[in-house]
Nucleic acid binder design. Structure first.
Lengths: 191, 191
DNA sequence: CCGGCGTTTCAGAAATTTCCGAAACGCATA
DNA sequence: TATGCGTTTCGGAAATTTCTGAAACGCCGG
């Protein structure tokens, strides 16, 4: 590996972090390199920079493309594939969340739904099902929320995030105005 | 493994999902079993149910305790340790998010801060740093928001989640009332 | 201090994942 | 249809992670 110190530090770190996520060290490093690169890189650039085997890089890139985390680019009169990450970091975050949800949440949601269809055959199973039902409801609430905010324009999203918990104040304030003594969810004019 | 079908399905699934997260299959299965169990279980109960070796279960439990995902319980006149998950699912989610942040986000934040202190030695490093700075800002925004909402009472949190993107409407509505023609963040009486 | 009971540690075995190099493949262009 | 260039596949090697059984440990009541 032959990289400027700042870049090397970041690349190595991302490799380690990668293994705490679903992706492996190599893939993490490739991603980090692409993320920092000012220009799209081709597979051989990455081989030269990171010293992995050609096929390993190829596999890694394939995985990153499957995750929608890197995109293919082409240069005129050059048959090679070049790879790059989106300039817009918000786009990256959106993709990341979307893909992790797809891999880590959705399968569980499906399984819970299926399992809750079955008739419990004992008290033990009855209790287990009740627990699963709780989990199912909670996940639905969370993914429902996500599905909502996901659609917001980035500008709006940032606005909301910046506001943080103070949004709560706005709601209380609205409450007092709209329906004194009642809770927001009850009489929501925006619903 | 000798479990009622509904429970077995869930346990196996959680094992698989576990490996997509940082934790391994065994640990995932142990957690799932504890989550569904109506009563706290001791290590030998888990050995009997899942068929792992005693030491493997011990290590798994240790890891789950380190994650704050399971708690120790004791019965009178019984020296054994019993393990259980919190009844309150929201508590579980809070712990999960907190711990994942600690493991997956905070180290990166630290590294970014350090790296951004160094003087870039080339244009390449300068560009890389700019990119890292972007990432740093974005993560700070997200964690700042999280730090805010984390403190909300569960009831308030649920209210907010249920509202979803409609909270946006409330903000616009507030805008019009408070400062027609201007954006919420500009003139926020709740700030 | 001893014996019983339960937990933890540890070194090696087993399983899984990662990684490499060689060969196969695909696709433009001549 | 041959050639050149780049990508992908694949079997096995290497590395890492997971798992086990045996032994060590720690604590309490006798």
């Amino acid at each position: 590996m032959n990289l400027p110190p700042l870049i090397q530090t970041f690349v190595l770190h991302f490799g380690e972090m990668g293994s705490r996520w679903g992706i492996n060290r190599t893939v993490g490093q490739i991603y980090a390199l692409l993320f920092l690169a000012p220009e799209p890189l081709c597979a051989d650039d990455i081989v030269a920079r990171l010293g992995f085997s050609r096929s390993n890089v190829s596999m890694g890139l394939k995985e990153l493309v499957a995750w929608n985390l890197v995109q293919l680019r082409h240069k005129p009169d050059d048959r090679r594939d070049f790879y790059t990450t989106p300039d817009d970091l918000w786009q990256i975050v959106r993709t990341l969340v979307e893909e992790r949800k797809k891999r880590e949440i959705d399968p569980t949601l499906t399984l819970l739904r299926e399992t809750l269809m079955h008739e419990p055959a004992s008290d033990e199973e009855r209790h287990a099902q009740a627990r699963m039902r709780e989990m199912h409801e909670l996940i639905e609430l969370l993914t429902g929320w996500y599905d909502d905010v996901r659609r917001l324009e980035t500008e709006r999203l940032v606005q909301l995030l910046t506001l943080g918990a103070r949004v709560q104040k706005v709601l209380e304030w609205k409450d007092r105005l709209v329906a004194p003594g009642r809770r927001a969810a009850d009489s929501d004019p925006t619903a």
